[in-house]
Amino acid sequence: MFQNLSERLESAFKNLKGEARISELNIANTVKDIRRALIDADVNYKIAKEFTDKVKEKALGEKVLNAISPGQLMVKIVQDELAELMGGKEAEFNITGNPAIILIAGLQGSGKTTFTGKLANYLKTKKGKSPLVVAADIYRPAAIDQLTVLAEQIGVDIYAERENKDAVAIAQNAIKRAKETNKNVIIIDTAGRLAVDEVMMTEVANIKKAVNPSEILFVVDSMTGQDAVNTAKAFNDRLDFNGVVLTKLDGDTRGGAALSIQYTVNKPIKFTSSGEKMDTLDVFYPDRMAQRILGMGDITSLVEKA
């Protein structure tokens, strides 16, 4: 669709050769094109509007150098702005404390349990930690079995209580177990929940209160559409989470939800997940994400070529 936004912008500016500065008039269509590209990538409608307005402001009056075309200049401004928005925050990962406590939360099916396994594996193999994963999802059929299988795969201990229907108590008991067995980091996998489910949102808020996590991560499916804003805001209001995990990036989604979430809650994306295997945990690259959202290859090299 917008596989090549830069080309489109290029041609939009073809007949503007003589104009040396970007003006309100010659930029109108370009701004519209960019806004459309963002919305096609699932960036929230309102945010796309605000964002392109900001870009326009930046671009107005910019001198168009001979080296790059106005279209390319615009794309570059957009991309820098995007990358800054998504990467401007401190993204340290806090695993201090003994044990350090990490709480995982998010919507149904977003990838929490899989990520719990991946993170445990990462902390074990890359950070020399001894993790304990905790099955605090007491609702989903076979949720405990699923985490058990993953824990076995990566050789990490799991804490679960099959008969206990109190997720808060399970989380608290897990801390005791961690101390007894010398685990220095625990990762609590929680059930998927909708932001509008008051009872479930209260449950996860209560888990937070009871265990005082060093990190709370909000796990979100990168294919999410316009609703990403509502969900991120609601979870952040209740949990004041520390960071975002963007999953299923091995798909071909443009991932505009990443921008919407950053814009809305201003929390760093700390990890990305691109696959179902336990070793595919990645740190987040704002530049790559910006390019992906805009639906194009490496724009920087394009600009260099010109």
């Binding site: 096609d40 990538a41 499916d221 294919m223 999410t224 559409g225 969900t231 071909d252 989604t253 939800a257």
Partner: peptide
Amino acid sequence: LDGSTGQNALE
């Protein structure tokens, strides 16, 4: 299809 999926559902 997940109802919260955006344009990728078309693909």
